[in-house]
Design a protein around this nucleic acid. Structure first.
Length: 654
RNA sequence: GGCGGAGUAGCUCAGUUGGUUAGAGCAAACGGUUCAUACCCGUUAGGUCGCCGGUUCGAGUCCGGCCUCCGCUACCA
């Protein structure tokens, strides 16, 4: 047993059935794993489900279900979808499994023994639905930044000394340019860490669900702290032998969980435990639908199997081939550095253009020509030089892309070979050569077959069922060794080829009349910011509406004259004053960022103009019940607005 | 506000270290071909390479400023 090449994927939280965006992480991991296996690596490919956390327990109970049974059912659904979409995992780990619990507790113990975990009192606001603590100043209108309910908690908990690892994590990122991919995410992480990392509270009071803290079962480990440990638990940690699979070569994650968890917390945890760190973490963007993130609450989700089933019923292709169509869409159109969009039109379009017209037709036409002009066997004449060159070039381009985990670029290399074949076939025109009994004919036929057989190997990581179907029509075993791509042995001379059979029947897409010019298809890529929530049947956006408001709009803003009675700096802030003011008779507290421009003495006693009906908000933990009006000079300094002469206290301004 | 990214043909995007007529795919128009799943091939787009200025013999490609969009992050009320 040698060293494994380990591929990890972020595990989804089991609170709903996955949509096509959710499986993107696993698909990326799968393509990577399949590619590396073809390269000859002994691959260990981990996937799984994240099942702890209070939210799960509450969801289960809300349905009157036993939590264990509840998560088991949902985890199975994920597993079924992974299986059906061809995710070739070697291990499916659930965070409720004993092996994961044991790994968490072992790691926790190690960190506690090392002094990287300490006991402290946590007091603050807690958002149950995301299991996150918030500082006072992070709250918005008494709710979490995401708008969830929060409750005040005060409990003794363990903290992880994340702050102590800022420098080391940063140094690691900076000295390993490939540690975080793609580049733009790397920059985001660096600037995040440079602001300093705070220690993180990593336990919660045990609600009867979760992983108990060793020796202190009244506490459970925070779900995020526990979740990332699954990667190493999957390799067998802490049992001897896990080192054969640890550390991973690559860890795939969605962009939303990169910065806080996989690029900072998780490496810091590994450092603290003296464990090796994975080579690379790659973050991909989201798959948007009509420009919006898919979410169950929005009701705009596309489920992978439903999509495949629908395609399958429209074309008559088998489900695995339909799944490949989905895999192709995602791997070809995704961009690592940005979000990508899904639409049904685009999906059909890609199916016809890339799969039916390009790869399907290339196979069909090459095989039928071989039967027509070469008696259905692989001719002995040598492959023409330009075909050798095209295959070699595509293969190299593919390898370069995959070395950097640029899956869409690898896909483009594979399809580029197919497109090359179309031009080649036309330029050599075997049907014309046949008429004149040209001796070049067999070499051309063999070259075409050579290219298709190579393409089978190149698309195999993305489209495993399609690749199998191509091999089957060739009457050859699957081309599953990378080095065999483009080789003599992969396509033996004299081999009797199978009969061609369309793999991807063309979809009939009714051509739209001609709305091409007038309506740019409802702005699929850049949805205009719509103020109106909910339904939007006939948007008809009024363009100038932004720039002009009505008098009624203006009168909604209640401006009043107020007097400053006290001014003191806000602790821990260097721009803010806490001001006590009176609006008429009514005392108010304001927070204002004018410390650079005024001393407290200059402020006290002055009359100012304030927005009196502004929703209170917290800045740096201090409530501000309004906003004062000020102009800004060219340096950005504030210039207070004041009445021209003493105004009646609390006078209305308009 | 800070940091970062992006702005290239109708659409999706490529464009290495600055260098001859700025590219690909798709869509559209026209033409060709018939081996193939009405498929494939060729031609056509006359694109101010976001705007302004600068460096240079020469800039999409470097520098400065500005505009717009996006991401991250804030002591923005």
């Amino acid at each position: 047993m040698g060293q494994f090449t380990t591929v990890c994927t972020a595990i989804p939280y089991v609170n709903s059935v996955p949509h096509i965006g959710n499986i993107l992480t696993d698909l990326c991991g799968d393509v990577t794993a399949r590619y590396l296996r073809m390269r000859g690596d002994q691959v260990f490919f981990q996937v799984g489900t994240d099942e702890n956390g209070l939210k799960i327990k509450e969801s289960a109970e809300a349905q009157g279900r036993d939590p264990y049974e509840f998560v088991a059912e949902i985890a199975q659904r994920f597993r079924d979808i992974f299986d059906a979409t061809g995710i070739s995992y070697d291990d499916f780990i659930r965070t409720t499994e004993p092996r994961h619990v044991a790994a968490c507790q072992a790691l926790f113990r190690t960190l506690r023994d090392n002094g990287h975990i300490y006991l402290g009192t946590y007091e603050g606001w807690y958002d149950v639905s995301t299991e996150t603590f918030f500082r006072e100043e992070e709250l918005k209108d008494g709710k979490s930044p995401d708008g969830n309910e929060v409750r005040w908690v005060s409990e003794d908990n363990y903290f992880f000394r994340l702050s102590a690892f800022s420098d080391r994590v940063l140094a690691h990122i900076e000295s390993n340019p490939n540690f975080i991919r793609p580049e733009n995410r790397r920059n985001e992480v660096i600037s995040f860490i440079k602001q300093g990392l705070r220690d993180i509270c990593i336990t919660r009071k045990n609600p009867g669900w979760g992983i108990p803290v060793p020796d202190q079962p009244e506490l459970v480990i925070y779900v995020w702290f526990d979740a990332v440990i699954n990667y190493i638990a999957s390799t067998g940690y802490p049992n001897p032998g896990f080192e054969a699979k640890w550390p991973p070569a690559v860890q795939w994650v969605g962009k939303d969980i990169l910065t806080r968890f996989h690029a900072t917390l998780w490496p810091a945890m590994l450092m603290a435990a003296d464990l090796p760190i994975f080579d690379t973490v790659v973050a991909h963007g989201w798959v948007l639908l009509s420009g919006e993130k898919m979410s169950k609450s929005r009701g705009n989700v596309v489920r992978p199997l439903e999509l495949a089933d629908e395609l399958s019923s429209r074309t008559g292709i088998s489900q695995p081939i339909a799944v490949d169509a989905l895999r192709h869409f995602l791997t070809a159109t995704m961009a690592l550095e940005a979000d990508s969009s899904f639409s049904y039109e685009e999906f059909d379009f890609r199916y016809n253009a890339d799969l039916a017209n390009d790869i399907g037709n290339a196979l069909n036409r090459s095989l039928s020509m071989a039967h027509r002009f070469a008696e259905g066997i692989v001719p002995a004449s040598p492959v023409e030089a330009e075909a050798e060159e095209a295959v070699r070039g595509a293969k190299l381009e593919y390898e370069i892309a995959m070395a950097d985990y640029r899956i869409p670029a690898a896909s483009a290399a594979a399809f580029g070979l197919i497109r090359w074949l179309g031009k080649y076939t036309d330029s050599r025109a075997p049907w014309a050569l046949a008429k004149t009994n040209d001796p070049a004919l067999p070499g051309v036929i063999r070259s075409m077959l050579h290219a298709v057989r190579a393409a089978e190997g190149l698309v195999r990581p993305m489209l495993p069922s399609t690749a199998d179907a191509i091999a089957a029509q060739f009457g050859l075993p699957p081309l599953s060794e990378w080095d065999a791509i483009g080789s003599e042995e992969s396509l033996p001379v004299g081999h009797a080829l199978g009969q061609p059979q369309p793999i991807f029947p063309r979809l009939e897409i009714e051509k739209k009349a001609a709305p091409a010019k007038s309506a740019p298809k409802a702005e699929k890529t850049k949805p205009m910011p719509e103020a109106t929530p909910e339904t939007k049947p006939a948007p008809n956006p009024a363009p100038a509406a932004d720039e002009q408001i009505t008098i009624d709009d203006f009168l909604k803003v209640k401006l009043r004259v107020a007097r400053i009675v006290e001014a003191e700096p806000v602790e821990g802030a260097d721009k803010l004053y806490k001001l006590q003011i009176v609006v008429g008779e009514e005392p108010r507290q304001l927070v204002a960022g004018i410390r650079k421009s005024y001393t407290p003495e200059e402020l006290i006693g002055r009359q100012i103009v304030v927005v009196a009906n502004l929703k209170p908000a917290k800045l740096r933990g201090v409530e501000s019940q309004g906003m004062l009006l000020a102009a800004t000079d060219e340096t950005g300094a504030a210039i207070l607005l004041m009445p021209d002469r003493e105004a009646p206290e609390g006078a209305t301004v308009r």
